[in-house]
Design a protein around this nucleic acid. Structure first.
Lengths: 161, 161
DNA sequence: GCCGAAGTTTAGCCTTGGCTAAACCATCCG
DNA sequence: CGGATGGTTTAGCCAAGGCTAAACTTCGGC
């Protein structure tokens, strides 16, 4: 059982915090880990919602990577406290994982709607949102939401009070 | 001399193309390489413009990573045809590298201005732009530019014809 | 109750971004 | 000319995302 004993709980957990400016410039491309975590928990939540449970194979299909890669990543996420994996059981999210998933999903939605609001076609918006969402700070997210609201007000409620 | 003989010219070069939807879903997180390439050539062009030449040490300072990391990355970029490195000489961009740099810089500028246009503060916009720019497709970029123009027209030309 | 297909885990290997330590060139300054 | 001082390269190590191949569970059918 020497499975994953060497994984030390390297906290990265800044994930969705207020993105402390880190280094003055150019983020170290290590935020990457956080991105993966977000993608995974988001996907897990999504799949759970759709079919009741999420198995490693589902993730492999979704991300188009091998099941082995998924297993390894899940091992890391488990060590980081986002998911719980039991030998041959479906993957489940921890409280922290669920929280992260909700935030991610929400942010994803806002980014997607925002892109469409500024005129990007659905298909492209979907692809771009996937890449962009991980780099949107809370402040920017608020601005995006504001623009969506503004536009919605202008279009939907027609120009009378 | 077994240095980097195993690096095969794995073309990734889709870099700034029209981002062919790749897999239907979730981009493989391998675009990453392209991001690094963009960051580097962009930085090299910037530094060259500022002080005439760019040395590995400058990049190390800028990215806040060790010179060794920079050297390794430059080796890869050289193999991919973006830069040219001579043992103890400054780094130079190839034609492809310069092209990539220009596109990146331009995109970076648009994203930054765009974020400010929708109300994001300068500091945050700068950080977010760094992360976002790599995931903006040409279409989205056009939409961003359009919004900037629209806003500029609305604000600058004051509401009289 | 046994078997095979589907889902998982193990083992082992690759590339990339990072790092430290140590050796190496270059160059400018006495 | 002789160093000290940087910029560079070598060597060697780590984590993380990927992969293939092979072994191992589960579970539904027959």
């Amino acid at each position: 059982m020497a499975e994953c004993a060497r994984i030390d709980p390297t906290c990265l957990r800044h994930a969705l915090s207020d993105k402390p400016p880190k280094h003055p410039f150019r983020r170290t491309r290590t935020d990457h880990r956080a991105e993966t975590a977000e993608d995974y928990v988001e996907a897990i939540a999504e799949i759970e919602g759709e079919k009741g449970q999420c198995r490693a194979a589902d993730l492999a299909r979704l991300f188009a990577v091998s099941h082995v890669t998924v297993a390894k990543t899940l091992g890391r996420l488990s060590a980081e406290g986002y998911v719980e994996t039991e030998p041959y059981a479906p993957v489940t999210l921890t409280a922290a994982g669920r929280r992260l998933a909700n935030q991610s999903r929400n942010r994803h939605t806002v980014v997607l709607e925002f892109l469409e609001a500024i005129g990007v076609s659905r298909e492209v918006a979907e692809v771009d949102a996937e890449g962009i969402e991980h780099h949107v700070s809370p402040e920017t997210l608020r601005c995006m939401q504001a623009l969506i609201d503004r536009q919605r007000a202008a279009a939907g409620e027609t120009p009378l009070s």
